[in-house]
Amino acid sequence: MRRSQQPAWKRHRAGACRIALAPLALCLLSAAAPWEGTLVIHVGNVRSAAGRVHADLCPERTFLKDGCGRSVEAPAVPGTTIVTIAGVPPGRYAVQLSHDENGNGRVDRGLFGIPKEGVGFSNDAPIRFGPPKFADAAIDVRPGSQTIDVRMRYFSGPSGPPAPR
């Protein structure tokens, strides 16, 4: 029997059930969505107020690539600059940082590709004859807010902020 041939009371009851179940389905779907996290990065050893501190939050597949993931910037503050990345789905990421002192939007490099501006990685991952491995820089972002400390490293010029007098 086709729907149009059903008695009116049956058609009405089926429609009412669908309408009543729709809010329940929405509640169940929204409850299953993962909570997002906020990552607060305290970038230490920033040597000057020139330019901006740029941070990328990267999943493994795009680590060390330009525009690897979520990017944020903050004005550079000598000593410690705080950068916040909000709305991060829980997961495993690495943070890569740069101090763009001249404001050209990239890390300037010198002889043999050595950075002229500051760079840093989560977990203060070691930089030995090249960039670190993802495993050394990886952090787990959880729901809620968490804070990490990263030290900016400079390979040319002053290695950090001027000493207090």
Rank of each mutant, 00 (worst) to 15 (best):
Q6Y: 15
Q6L: 15
P7L: 08
A8I: 13
A8G: 05
W9V: 13
K10W: 13
R11L: 04
H12L: 15
R13G: 06
A14R: 04
A14G: 04
A16L: 15
A22S: 13
A22Q: 01
P23Y: 06
P23G: 02
A25V: 13
A25G: 10
A25M: 13
A25K: 00
L26D: 05
L28D: 08
L29G: 05
S30R: 08
A31H: 08
A32M: 02
P34A: 05
P34D: 01
G37E: 11
T38F: 01
L39T: 00
H42I: 00
N45Q: 12
V46P: 08
R47D: 00
R47C: 12
S48L: 00
V53Y: 03
H54K: 01
H54I: 14
A55F: 10
A55Q: 07
T62E: 04
A74P: 02
A76S: 07
A76C: 02
V77W: 08
V77M: 04
G79C: 06
T80E: 14
I82A: 14
I82T: 15
V83L: 12
V83E: 07
G87E: 01
G87F: 02
V88A: 08
V88Y: 05
V88Q: 03
P89H: 05
P90F: 08
G91V: 04
R92I: 11
R92T: 11
R92G: 00
V95N: 10
V95G: 06
H99E: 12
N102H: 08
G103K: 07
N104P: 03
G105T: 11
R109M: 10
R109F: 13
L111S: 13
G113T: 05
P115S: 10
V119T: 10
V119L: 04
F121V: 09
S122L: 13
G130P: 08
G130F: 03
P131T: 12
P132T: 07
P132N: 12
P132Q: 10
K133P: 03
A135R: 11
D136C: 02
A138H: 07
I139E: 10
I139F: 04
D140S: 09
P143D: 01
G144H: 06
G144Q: 09
V150S: 05
R151T: 07
M152R: 14
F155R: 04
F155N: 04
S156N: 02
G157W: 05
G157H: 09
G157S: 02
S159N: 12
P161K: 09
A163E: 14
P164K: 13
R165W: 06
R165E: 06
